[in-house]
Write a protein that binds this DNA or RNA. Structure first.
Lengths: 125, 125
DNA sequence: TAAACAATTAAACAATCGTTTAATTGTTCT
DNA sequence: AGAACAATTAAACGATTGTTTAATTGTTTA
């Protein structure tokens, strides 16, 4: 009855492993990591990343996004759907056009911040 | 001589598009966005994301990482190679073992920060 | 209601990716 | 040198993904 959770019985015990126990506990939160991984997966594509970047700064209709990206509207629409399903962007219909923009959430704010940080962009507006 | 760069001649002109010109200019930095996308791609996988997380907090050998992840060493080794090629982690041989840890760079610091922000983790140590 | 425009959906294809298994390289100890 | 351990590499398989083409849905105007 000595060790209730022998969570750190690793093949090798070297050095002072510090807070290995806590780390191993966090590593068990697989669903939470999956949430983060899913977000990264959405922006691991050059096309979607740039679309997201555009929509962080402007609200645009599909045709204009397609023109900026030099892509077909079906391709753009496909990517918009993925981004929207993950709540990274939102949409609004006005007449014939559907306007998209980045949604306002901690995730999008953090992502936007990271992208501009790494790319050394001074966010206009 | 009026418009030197008619970079914002889009199919539709609606609303006040604000800083569309600047956005379109940034969108042209495709290689820079690719760099960001490549980093996201490295962490879009649950396995690699958790390995990276471990190595943000501890320096560990392959066998221990494999044990924590409940994976085979070849699979882990494969992911470590990808992370190392992108300079997200570094390695050091000591005897039979090779120890890996997260490298110290703005990219890794920002990523680590983002992950813990989103996961609402109280970073151990 | 018919035509024109905007956007989405669906099927199909090539390309990429993560894991497994097996073989190989590198290091230490006897 | 040989045995044992740690790590990497390579080939192969199944699964996922991004784009294209074509057809369809939704909206407005003539």
């Amino acid at each position: 009855m000595g060790k209730e959770i022998d969570s750190h019985s690793l093949p090798h015990q070297h050095h002072e492993d510090g807070c290995l126990e806590e780390i191993q506990h966090e590593i068990g939160r697989i669903e939470d990591f999956q949430t983060v991984a899913d977000t990264f997966k959405l922006l691991d594509d050059n096309t979607r990343l740039r679309i997201f970047f555009i929509l962080c700064h402007a609200e645009e209709c599909v045709i204009n996004i397609a023109a900026m990206m030099d892509m077909s509207t079906p391709a753009v629409s496909h990517h918009l759907k993925l981004l929207k399903n993950a709540n990274l962007i939102s949409s609004r219909r006005e007449g014939k056009e559907v306007y998209y923009k980045a949604s306002d959430s901690p995730v999008t704010r953090n992502l936007h911040h990271y992208i501009e940080n790494i790319m050394d962009i001074v966010c206009p507006k």
